[in-house]
Design a protein around this nucleic acid. Structure first.
Lengths: 193, 193
DNA sequence: TGAAAACGTTGACATTTGTCAATAAAGAAC
DNA sequence: GTTCTTTATTGACAAATGTCAACGTTTTCA
């Protein structure tokens, strides 16, 4: 069960982990399971955990005054899921996070994070993860302000083709910032062009 | 000239810098000046520098096939400016970065970054900067997909009131992902409500 | 200081996207 | 197996935003 996390760490760092490091990792990351639709974080609460997805699919979203969900982030196996602002600053979150499929996770409490970061290999891994999260977020933002709906969808097809397989269209639409009807029409146009 | 950077570092880290650390910082950060509209990074080139703005205002933007500019980032005094993806991966950038006002910077070459990161205080500062960049980017993304133009503008007014003072409306509009005409109408509605 | 450029606003109209309702198919639950 | 829920599509219409052109003002700078 921890092999998946350990090999993830190995892939995103240069130096190997000592046996002692591995012990620490196994002691602070706790296994957890979520049923489909089960909440990992509820709006208004403080995000207590960082989750590493072993198996399953999750989503992070806000709910607006009309009750519409807006998907901020989707995540599959070997992705991290957390509301970083809430987790780090211990402020109430404006987002919900839940499981879209039955999901197995390894979760890390905020209180254990500092201890983990004393392992240079882990620190390096999180450093890289932060960098790529930021870069991905900035790209998505760039698409969001610069591209019309169809091109945003085409970008998504290229960047995260798995999403299309794992999430229904209304979720994809929300991720793109459009309605499911608009996405349906966009797809229709793409087929006929 | 370096005091501004040193006090920035002090503000975003817990431990103080040694005199030796300060010497290193002064040796790797080089002063630079940009005239208004002068390019710091041109689309297609690799971003060579991270800039710390001492005085002035800058923008990072893409240019679409119709020649329209889309502002990805605006920055003022005590902000960092860089295309992180290009800088770190050494890949050609899709963005331009230029000065919107005559600007004074301290610039850091990518080659000198590693050396700097060996100073724990600096590493901590960059760590925090990465975190807050990501959080800011995610918030902006969240607004971009969830809020209509007027509310995005109101959010901007709250979050970065300085931008309104320092950049003309067509720049603000582009930052929000709308046209200058739409922004003008939004502002008109806000006055009359 | 005077011409040129940049900026901001407005109107008319086009385009994109959203809303609502109806329908049908696919999938989940009992 | 059959009922209920979820998902996807489509049409008619509404709302938001974009486009283009014109105009006046402000700013820039030679």
């Amino acid at each position: 069960m921890y092999d998946q996390l350990l090999s993830y760490i190995a892939r995103y760092s240069e130096s190997p982990l000592t046996t002692k490091d591995e012990e620490l990792i196994k002691s602070v990351f706790k296994p957890a399971r979520l049923k489909k639709k089960e909440l990992f974080l509820e709006q208004g609460n403080i995000c207590q955990f960082t989750g590493f997805i072993l198996k399953g699919a999750m989503r992070q979203y806000s709910v607006d005054s009309s009750g519409n969900e807006h998907i901020i982030q989707l995540a599959l196996e070997n992705w991290w899921m957390v509301d970083r602002e809430s987790y780090l600053m211990k402020t109430p979150s404006v987002y919900n996070i839940d499981a879209w499929e039955d999901t197995e996770l390894l979760v890390l409490e905020a209180a254990d994070l500092q201890q983990l970061l004393e392992i240079p290999t882990i620190k390096e891994m999180f450093w890289k993860m932060n960098q790529s999260s930021f870069i991905a977020s900035q790209k998505r933002l760039s698409n969001s302000i610069a591209l019309p709906a169809m091109e945003r969808y085409e970008e998504l097809l290229k960047t995260y083709p798995d999403f299309i397989q794992r999430f229904p269209q209304h979720i994809i639409a929300s991720y793109l910032g459009i309605t499911k009807e608009t996405l349906s029409r966009v797809r229709n146009k793409l087929v006929h062009k």
